[in-house]
């Protein structure tokens, strides 16, 4: 594998920053509860695409930065990211062969796991009152996975094809 073309640090970092930006963007009020965890989706993509470069510790660090960015308890997103990265690393050989729909199912369960962890660890009044809308990001995240997957793959492979 050629050393520089296989993995673009710049694109990787930019995609993470862009995902962070999407996560905290001020969407119009009715759309707010639908906003999925873009950072987790992008981390999943990079773990699947370059498992030898992006691993559990990278995911953990990104999670820690996410915690600071969004004002969560330190370690919440770090825990989620490292667990999901672990699942992706374990299954990445199989997941790469799956059609996008089957991948979507896996993503759905990853996002569900992450939302459950938030539900259990955060002891805020807010979540207790949020009812079913709390779980909406799991669905929208799954629906946006193909978009994230194909756009990031296009970005990752852009220079190699040329």
């Amino acid at each position: 594998m050629p050393k520089n073309n296989a993995f673009g640090y710049g694109r990787y970092l930019l995609s993470i920053i862009f995902a962070m930006s999407l996560n905290i963007a001020a969407w119009p009020q009715p759309l707010t509860p639908f906003n999925p965890n873009w950072i987790l989706l992008v981390v999943i993509y990079w773990v699947l695409a370059a498992p030898d470069r992006v691993g559990i510790f990278s995911a953990w660090t990104i999670g820690l930065l996410t915690d600071v960015l969004t004002g969560r308890m330190l370690g919440l997103n770090a825990l989620i990211n490292s667990l999901v990265a672990f699942l992706c690393l374990r299954l990445h050989k199989r997941l790469r062969q799956y059609p996008i729909l089957q991948q979507g199912l896996f993503i759905f369960f990853c996002l569900l796991l992450s939302q459950f962890l938030i539900f259990w660890i955060t002891d805020s009044q807010t979540i207790a009152r949020a009812s079913y809308t709390f779980w909406l990001p799991v669905l929208t995240g799954t629906l946006f996975w193909p978009l994230v997957f194909f756009s990031l793959r296009a970005i990752r492979l852009y220079r190699r094809i040329r």
């Binding site: 691993g55 559990i56 510790f57 990278s58 953990w60 370690g75 825990l79 672990f86 690393l89």
Partner: peptide, 27 residues
């Protein structure tokens, strides 16, 4: 970006353990 120390280091089970313990310690 990359952690050269662990590029050929411990298995992913060990890394997960370290990451989870670190997260819970922070929490």
């Amino acid at each position: 970006v990359i952690n050269p120390l662990f590029a050929t280091g411990p298995s992913i089970n060990t890394r997960l353990l370290v990451a989870v313990v670190a997260s819970i310690a922070l929490l």
